[in-house]
Design a protein around this nucleic acid. Structure first.
Length: 371
RNA sequence: GGGGGCGUGGUGUAGCCAGGUUAUCAUGGCGGGCUCCAGACUCGCCGACCUGGGUUCGAAUCCCAGCGCCCCCA
């Protein structure tokens, strides 16, 4: 079997999520933890119910603290190397839900510096342009502007730099090399960068000078950064940030091909209706060779990228999702029809998103903070 | 500052030393066949020699310069 790779800069192969929990040393979000969240929020978001967010660090501790009156804030981010696709929305959707349910502040870091340093062909100017482009998508998701600060690293560096320095002083090249797999050919900006990504995890504590926890919802590939962040937190006498990790949104070109930012294997929020139709129509399914065979044996939803789209985003209702799954398995639902239905749902979603995105252009100043 | 390596389709590469048809292979993209779709399979297509000089009948290949990237030493 092909080996899989998960780092903040590369995700490929057929990912074994259990192995990640083991190798990274994180914990599963188990039933008792889910019940605890439900107790505090009143319900559970489907991304939690369905174990799409499946792993964590110290979420239990953070919730216990919360019950005892110790507040927390949310911190997540985006590396602006291109347009936003549907997969990027997963952590942000849960982040919004958490913001709403817990009524907490959110820091949203846009790492244009990172993408500039790590993407060979990306200029700093282009990264900044994508930053502003991507911010519209973030705002479109409906975060509460009174409790949300979005910042672009190159425009907010003064506020981040002192903390980043404190972090950097306690990270050696060997540590960073081991955490990220760097070799001698990496530029020195890349080596330093993780310190910048650590800063927002401590910034609220620095500002308030009183105990406040930080919760970071992110895809699990970002965990190596925050492992280092947590390590230095001890030394710097900061609270360790807590994390919840999501799985990756499946690729349309096959579930074991996770090169998710290939043009045709994902849907960009900027894709028009025809392009969505074309991409979904080309997507890999769990269907059988012929109608006859499909009717007799049924499809295999767990191998189907289309079903995964329902599962991850486009059918929040568990009963309705189960209905789709059953109809597929018993041969009642054919892939063509299933695709048509999904195309309608995606295009409906994107149409709404585009409207909100347009409106977001007038709202940027309410969210964006600069030095 | 010194020494060395490298630059070929979107990506990864072969070819370079010993210059010579239409530049290799894989992956990707596009189109067709087969499929309810897609995949698999199958047929076809698309797409590259860093730049500028020089040598030569002829340069990806040899020489010079430039640009860019990388490694080692200081």
């Amino acid at each position: 079997m092909e080996e899989f790779v998960v780092t903040p800069w590369e995700v490929r192969g057929k990912i074994n999520y259990d192995k990640l929990v083991k190798n990274f040393g994180t914990k599963y979000i188990d039933e008792s933890l889910l019940q605890k969240i439900k107790k505090l929020t009143g319900d559970l978001h489907f991304l939690l119910r369905r174990k799409i967010f499946y792993s964590h660090r110290d979420l239990d501790k953070l919730l216990n603290d919360y019950e005892r009156g110790i507040p927390f804030y949310l911190y997540t981010g985006r590396g602006p190397s291109g347009h936003v696709h549907l997969g990027h929305l997963i952590p942000w959707i849960l982040t919004k839900w958490l913001q709403d349910r817990f009524n907490v502040k959110l820091l949203f870091q846009i790492t244009d510096d990172e993408k500039f340093l790590f993407k060979k062909t990306l200029s700093l100017e282009d990264a900044l342009n994508y930053a502003y482009d991507n911010i519209l998508d973030i705002i479109a998701l409906g975060f509460d502007h009174r409790k949300t600060e979005i910042f672009i690293d190159t425009e907010y560096i003064k506020s981040l730099y002192k903390i980043a320095l404190k972090v950097a002083k306690h990270l050696t090249y060997s540590t960073v090399k081991a955490a990220f797999g760097f070799d001698s050919s990496y530029n020195i900006g890349a080596i330093f960068f993780t310190a910048i990504q650590s800063a927002p995890a401590f910034i609220e504590y620095e500002r308030n000078k009183r105990l406040i926890n930080c919760l970071i919802p992110c895809a699990i590939d970002q965990d190596p950064h925050f492992r280092l962040t947590r390590d230095v937190a001890k030394v710097l006498k900061y609270p360790k940030p807590c994390l919840i990790h999501s799985k990756f949104f499946p690729s349309l070109s096959g579930l074991d091909k996770m090169s998710s930012s290939e043009e045709v294997s994902c849907i960009y929020v900027t894709d028009d209706e025809e392009l969505v139709r074309k991409k979904i129509w080309k997507a890999v399914t769990g269907g059988r060779g012929t109608v006859k065979e499909q009717r007799e044996k049924g499809g295999i939803p767990k191998n189907c990228s289309i079903f995964m789209y329902y599962y991850y985003l486009f059918e929040p209702d568990d009963n309705k999702l189960r209905e789709i799954e059953n109809k597929c398995k018993n041969g009642e639902l054919l892939c063509g029809d299933c695709k048509e239905d999904l195309i309608l749902r995606i295009n409906k979603f994107l149409k709404e998103h585009r409207k909100k995105r347009e409106k977001a252009k007038d709202l940027i100043d309410k969210y964006l903070v600069r030095d």
